[in-house]
Amino acid sequence: MKIAMPVFNKSLESGIAESFGRTPYFLIYDMEEKTCAFFDNTAIASQGGAGIKAAQAVVDSGAAVVVVPQCGENAANVLKEAGLKMYKTISKSVQENIAAFAEGKLSPLENVHAGFHNHGGK
């Protein structure tokens, strides 16, 4: 099973990014193989709908699970429709969250916010 996380750097030492749609990179971690891959989030420079575009890329990556601090409703709709499960991070550390997921200690993400559309400055 592959899990996806929004991260600041292409490294397992990286911190987890707060924004799903506008994170610089996504980490795709393979739980069985214990391997990782990173890809650039091309949605970061979008004028709008970044969450939708980022979610599409995560779905296309083949991940079955997304681990995030928070998620906007458009992105969540795409992820849910594609059958991905969403969990809430317990800290900013990638490795701590991978370990917690492996032990079944992450809880499902329940609060989906309405997005930051135009409220974070244009």
Partner: peptide, 11 residues
Amino acid sequence: FCKFNALAYIG
């Protein structure tokens, strides 16, 4: 094409 990302192809 959509610069506003109003479309997604899912499932």
